[in-house]
């Protein structure tokens, strides 16, 4: 297990961005009556601000739980979760979640969907619509503002969800298998879009996926989780040059890394 706990704030936030995450000995055990399941046992790791980290691992290994912990929606049974040097105690306003299932609100237009996060946080109508408009264009859905989710494909709906998250200007974007419900071709396409969007906004991203190739393609670092009770088996740095196009997936370096990770999961 590679443990990389850094305490120097400068190292964690090298470009002056916020959104550095430190997990220190985190454990998460769920109780159901007399049973107790430990999803996550002793995970420690650091996410540098502005970096894209994927988390891969077998099903049920607690990957989603880590996202909840960083978002402050759950508290670890033991250990600490820290963002920018401060402990995470309650739901954070500087994180935004994107889910696997379609979470668009079918009774609202695309624009109002994207503005929804801001609306729930009390931002005024004119301001939030302006921000939403920007985000709609950023994710490549310009022209669809007045459409309703049922008129959009699955990939487009996920882009709406991403736009909604980005509209809230989080320092950390938490994505829980966001492309899991899409077919492979759409996954590649939206993945390329996501890379483009990330490269222009440079948020910290924690990206959970079961698709190793997708993880390697998108990230700066891949965390490999073991079976439950999960530990961090490895943190693999991805040194492929950016910006990355889909062609990089056929390079030897890429294939090699993917194979390496698959071996760790086996």
């Amino acid at each position: 297990m590679t443990s990389m706990v850094n305490s120097g704030v400068e190292t964690i936030n090298p470009d002056g961005h916020d959104g550095a995450v430190v997990l220190d000995g985190v454990e998460m055990t769920f109780r159901n009556g007399a049973d107790a399941t430990t999803a996550v046992a002793d995970v420690s790791g650091t996410v540098r601000a502005g970096s894209f980290v994927s988390i891969v691992g077998p099903s049920g290994c607690g990957k989603s739980t880590l996202l909840d912990l960083v978002a402050g929606l759950q508290s670890p049974t033991s250990g600490a979760v820290m963002v920018d040097g401060g402990a995470v105690r309650k739901p954070r306003r500087d994180t935004a979640l994107v889910f696997q299932e379609d979470s668009t609100l079918h009774w609202r237009t695309v624009l109002d969907n994207v503005a929804f996060g801001l609306e729930m946080r009390g931002v005024g109508k004119r301001e939030r619509r302006a921000v939403a408009q920007e985000m709609v264009e950023l994710v490549g859905l310009g022209g669809f503002e007045k459409h309703r989710p049922r008129q959009l494909s699955g990939g487009m709906r996920q882009r709406v969800a991403i736009a909604r998250a980005l509209a809230m200007n989080p320092s950390i974007l938490l994505m829980d298998e966001p492309f899991g419900a899409l077919d492979q071709q759409t996954r590649h396409h939206v993945g390329a879009e996501l890379t483009r969007i990330w490269e222009s906004t440079r948020k910290t991203v924690l990206f959970v996926t079961h698709d190793v190739a997708e993880a390697v393609y998108l990230s700066d670092q891949v965390w490999v989780m073991s079976k439950r009770p999960s530990r961090l088996s490895a943190c693999i740095d991805i040194t492929l040059p950016r910006p990355r196009s889909l062609e990089v997936m056929s390079t030897d370096a890429f294939q090699h890394t993917v194979a390496q990770i698959w071996e760790m999961l086996a």
Binding site: N32, S75, T77, K90
Partner: peptide, 9 residues
């Protein structure tokens, strides 16, 4: 919803 983060159920 908002407020305290949830502990074990």
């Amino acid at each position: 919803p908002s407020g305290r983060a949830k502990k074990a159920p």
